[in-house]
Design a protein around this nucleic acid. Structure first.
Length: 111
DNA sequence: TTTTTGACGATTC
DNA sequence: AGAATCGCCAAAA
């Protein structure tokens, strides 16, 4: 992969997520223009494990604020720990104050 | 080139 | 209100 437009965009957006903030796959997909294809964002995250610099995928959750991708963090609690380490409350693999910490790329970047 | 999948989202039953 | 299913589209085998 040299210029994976789609992946690169996803990586770029996720890397732009400031600490203590989180966003949803759909929000990123919407920003990329492939709205409705939120799954593509998740699929891109698979490659994120091989992306340089590393992608703070722990700041990306689903629309429900659930840490669905926590299983990809080596440990099933790493993602939760990372979020809590940034000041985000996580309960039962679910982000609390989701909308409060929500970070919309189309607003922060697209603005 | 075709088929399967996939860290989602929304709608329908 | 809860559970199940369809739809999005791109990448990997």
């Amino acid at each position: 992969m040299k210029d994976p437009n789609f992946f690169e965009k996803v990586f770029d957006v996720v890397r732009l997520i400031p600490p203590g903030r989180i966003t949803s796959y759909g929000a990123i997909a919407n920003f990329l223009g492939t709205k409705g294809s939120s799954r593509m964002v998740g699929w891109a995250m698979h490659a994120a494990s091989s992306a340089i610099p590393p992608i703070p995928a722990h700041r990306v959750v689903n629309s429900a604020g659930l840490l669905t991708g926590k299983v990809h963090f080596g440990t099933p609690t790493l993602m939760e720990e990372l979020l809590k380490s940034e000041g985000i409350l996580v309960k039962d693999d679910k982000v609390q104050n989701f909308k409060k910490h929500f970070w919309d790329p189309s607003v922060e970047i697209g603005g």
